[in-house]
Design a protein around this nucleic acid. Structure first.
Lengths: 250, 250
DNA sequence: ACAAAAGTGTTCGCTCTACACCCATGG
DNA sequence: CCATGGGTGTAGAGCGAACACTTTTGT
């Protein structure tokens, strides 16, 4: 079949056969946050009617995790980011048929497992970039997702579940919120991720007790009301908590 | 280099090139339990000084999870088993050098990612089987592990951590304990996995409350003392709990 | 009789929840 | 003044830890 995409795929196929490890792909669920909502970065494939999570192939000469960071950075321009492997997807026909109308020797038509990573970022910092086979790369609200192709809905669902479970024993917020932020902003982040309201007083105490916050002497002036306190994350205790978690029973 | 193993590898190499997906391997951390201790199934590689987790390659025509079950069954003869994917390992040199002295075109010398699964079984039911490149397959106590080759110590550690964390929100015991078992036996299982003593009364209440146990009218006769009550797992609620977990905060 | 097992009660301390109250302060 | 933010108090529910008491029962 002759089309713009067909040509691109052929060329890309050669490059990947040379450079990438067969059978392995990486898909990234990039969650973005601003003051109002939680979104996910999706790409629209050329000549296809549907969207995909940004992904790519692992180079022969790079570590798995480095591959995930590279793919992520190539789409968002963001390198300092929280990235978490959550599951590997390996059903037989997960990506079959996808390029069925194109050249049968195509790299892309082979069988791939996909290692799923999720990332969290502030989408104000991100410049979504399309790649060779996409015609768009956009933030989509997680409550209004378009149709996802292949098994990417399943991958997304697993990532969201992991993200929410992770809130129980991992801190969240660094690189999502601005450097300096207020307690209501932090609470809003949690509420948006969990999609439910939280009690203010309890949230305040909980966060304070975790010991990951530095309270600054400054306040945020200029609002219509009382100037709220500003906080930063304490990089040391925050990272310590990321490593070791907040609690664990038994 | 000429050796028994070298010949085997060459032959196996051809088979795998034909039959298996490149770049992917599966390693299984098979935990075994009897009334006294927690062990893990290890294999001793021919002509090598050290042990490995049982593993294998994913066939081109099978689902990832099915591959894990197949590999597991080929080593243990056990098919009804709890199997849980926990992490995928993809460092660049994780399996390099391992067959360094053998033919450079060998399948086995390529780069592989390894998808880690852990399994739980009663090792009384298992008949460990050696495979083509191992000279032994044995249960080893987890507190006295021999030297593990490649990155298999790291894989094992990650599996044990996951297993222990899992006890907080997943039931354990089905297929590990005999069909009918007593409360002290169940408690012992938990204590061995967690490597610490638990309070009897609290344990009794906790397990009872989970609602995954059927209390039988029978007791275990023949012991030196009072005949303990026998229980079975309630397959329905047990599996329901496996799926959905016991709790989750927020 | 003895010892293990079974079942239950109780106390203490902690955490989470929900709600409420008070103060501060920018406009 | 008032809306928002900050901080604290507290009552109630629930749970886990620890311990202890009682009963059952096989040998």
């Amino acid at each position: 079949m002759r089309s713009e995409l067909a040509d691109i795929l052929l060329k890309d196929s050669e490059i990947n056969i040379e450079k990438s490890l067969p059978s392995i792909s990486i898909d990234c669920v990039v969650f973005g946050f601003d003051t109002a909502s939680l979104k996910v970065l999706l790409t629209k494939v050329k000549e296809k009617d549907g969207w995909l999570l940004p992904g790519g192939y692992l180079h022969k000469s790079e570590n798995l995790e480095d591959g995930a960071y590279r793919i992520l950075e190539s789409r968002t321009g963001v390198s300092e980011i929280y990235l978490q492997q959550f599951k590997t997807f390996g059903k037989l026909n997960r990506s079959n048929d996808f390029f069925s109308e194109y050249d049968k020797n195509l790299w892309h038509k082979r069988r791939f497992l996909s290692v799923g990573y999720y990332a969290l970022t502030n989408f104000a910092k991100v410049e979504p970039k399309i790649d060779y086979l996409s015609e768009a790369c956009e933030w989509k609200n997680i409550n209004e997702l378009p149709q996802l192709l292949m098994d990417h809905q399943e991958i997304f669902d697993a990532a969201l579940l992991e993200l929410r479970k992770g809130l129980n024993y991992r801190p969240v917020g660094l690189n999502l919120l601005p450097e300096k932020f207020t307690m209501p902003e932090l609470q809003r982040l949690y509420e948006i991720i969990l999609d439910k309201p939280l009690n203010r007083g309890n949230f305040y105490r909980k966060m304070t007790k975790y010991g990951i916050l530095n309270k600054l002497k400054e306040t945020r002036k200029g609002g219509a009301h009382k100037a709220p306190n500003l906080y930063t994350f304490n990089a040391e205790t925050y990272n310590e908590a990321l490593e070791n978690g907040f609690k664990e029973a038994w």
